[in-house]
């Protein structure tokens, strides 16, 4: 009973801290002190196409994962972790597409501040992921578990940085031409 109450209190506290952090992130990255992202019509269109590609990526991934589960002799990843990896891959496809088509950063967003905030979030997630690894939670019986979520989140953000850098260089090249 006491354990459950403690667990519940911890969960509520974590949720409150999470909401506070999200509000700080949203305010910090905006140029007009609002928390809402404003996109123009082209950006909304790009984001819609990005969602479509992300969705289809998730469907294809799930089909491939089900084959992997059905026919694989030894499982290296548990079902929860397999699902999480699919979510992160499709999120990456969506975000990378939007970054490349210049629909990721809203009109009232400061890209430099977003990169700084993303770096902080990635580091935080790597720290939590490292802690899970050290406590032996990330791998159980030789299988990757859902405790890899923070590590995956960190990897996702780190993988987006080269896309942003490539896009930035591409824009500079276009401006020179």
């Amino acid at each position: 009973m006491e354990y459950n109450l403690g667990f519940l209190a911890g969960g509520i506290l974590a949720a409150i801290i999470g909401v506070i952090f999200i509000c700080i992130f949203l305010r910090y990255t905006k140029t007009d002190n609002s928390t809402k992202c404003k996109y123009d019509e082209r950006q909304q269109l790009v984001r819609g196409i990005g969602f479509k590609y992300g969705f289809f990526t998730f469907i294809i991934y799930n089909a491939a994962a089900s084959v992997f589960i059905s026919f694989g002799e030894k499982q290296y990843i548990d079902h929860d972790a397999l699902m999480l990896i699919g979510i992160f891959i499709s999120t990456f496809v969506y975000a990378a597409f939007c970054i490349w088509k210049e629909g990721y950063f809203s009109l009232n967003e400061n890209p430099k501040r977003v990169v700084i905030a993303f770096t902080a979030i990635a580091l935080l997630n790597f720290c939590i992921g490292w802690r899970s690894y050290l406590h032996g939670l990330m791998f159980e019986n030789g299988m990757l578990t859902s405790h890899c979520i923070n590590f995956l989140c960190g990897i996702l953000i780190v993988l987006l940085f080269p896309v942003m850098a490539a896009k930035h260089m591409n824009k500079q090249k276009e401006a020179e031409e």
């Binding site: 123009d40 019509e41 082209r42 950006q43 210049e102 009109l107």
Partner: peptide
């Protein structure tokens, strides 16, 4: 006009067809 610079660039390059409002 309340859009991003990239949107104006895309219209000028012919990569994007704007709505009648824009």
């Amino acid at each position: 006009v309340g859009v991003s610079r990239q949107t104006i660039s895309a219209i000028e390059k012919g990569d994007y067809n704007p709505t009648i409002n824009l």
